[in-house]
């Protein structure tokens, strides 16, 4: 059971990282990056590392997303 949950999260994280690289709209790429760090925090929690999971969820999913969105507001939204 836990093996298939791992496989599911791996596939989702690979998809979200590919989206975050290839998306033309930078807002989509930032949101998929936040999804990636959320999935990574779930993986850390399953692997018995709750410290790293809390840090990843607080920093990766919340703060860096906000900082990237502030940066996108300052610059252009579309990728060239």
């Amino acid at each position: 059971m836990i093996f298939w949950i791992f496989i599911f999260i791996f596939i989702l994280s690979i998809i979200s990282s590919i989206v975050s690289i290839t998306a033309k709209d930078l807002l989509y790429s930032v949101l998929s990056l936040s999804l990636l760090s959320l999935l990574t925090s779930i993986l850390f929690f399953i692997l018995n590392a709750p410290d790293v999971a809390i840090t990843e969820a607080a920093v990766g999913a919340a703060l860096t997303t906000v900082i990237f969105i502030f940066g996108i507001r300052r610059t252009e939204r579309e990728d060239k």
Binding site: D51, I54, T55, A58, V59, L63
Partner: peptide, 12 residues
């Protein structure tokens, strides 16, 4: 689990 850095991130 937790500590200074995630707590600081949550406060921020």
């Amino acid at each position: 689990p937790g500590g200074g850095f995630p707590a600081g991130a949550i406060i921020a």
